[in-house]
């Protein structure tokens, strides 16, 4: 820089985020990405369910083969993974509910904890009833 050149007072440095790996920079962003990724596993479960219906419609032999595949370690590992992501998906869904739905009772808005707690409790009760109906 020569003596006569004006100081570059307006030059700024603009940080750039990696469009691919930005989410690794903060634990909260990793949690967000896992939450979003959980939808893929929910979709995978529904695809498996459709495949089950397809096998059922194809006859006893196809259904028996499908059932046999479900007993393989790969299938069991996949379902454990799907269950873990389904729990994450459902829990985060209900925890975020009070941000979207503001519940007013007797002219006063309920606290976020009360709304999320109510939703989680209702989910646990319904899940337990479904499990009792299916397994009982």
């Amino acid at each position: 820089m020569t003596v006569n050149s004006p100081p570059n007072a307006t030059r700024t440095y603009r940080p750039v985020m990696s469009p691919t790996w930005w989410w690794l920079r903060h634990p909260a962003w990793v949690q967000f990405m896992l939450r979003e990724l959980s939808s893929v596993f929910i979709a995978a479960f529904l695809a498996l369910y459709l495949a089950r219906l397809g096998a059922f419609a194809s006859g006893p032999a196809a259904y028996a083969a499908f059932q046999a595949w479900h007993r393989t370690p790969l299938s069991i590992a996949l379902h454990v993974l799907i269950l873990a992501f389904a729990l994450l998906h459902s829990t985060t869904w209900f925890l975020l509910t009070p941000k979207i739905a503001r519940v007013h009772v007797a002219g006063r808005s309920m606290s976020e904890k009360a709304v999320a707690g109510g939703a989680l409790t209702a989910w646990a009760i319904v899940s337990a009833l479904v499990a009792w109906w299916l397994l009982g």
Binding site: A28, F32, L96, P98, K99, I100, R102
Partner: peptide, 26 residues
């Protein structure tokens, strides 16, 4: 907005911008 939600976590005044945006989406 993709509802990351960190705006509301860091807000020092508990304004909850994430909630505001989702309520406007509704």
């Amino acid at each position: 907005c993709t509802f990351v939600g960190q705006c509301s976590v860091v807000c020092p005044k508990k304004v909850d911008p994430a909630g505001a945006i989702q309520q406007e989406k509704v």
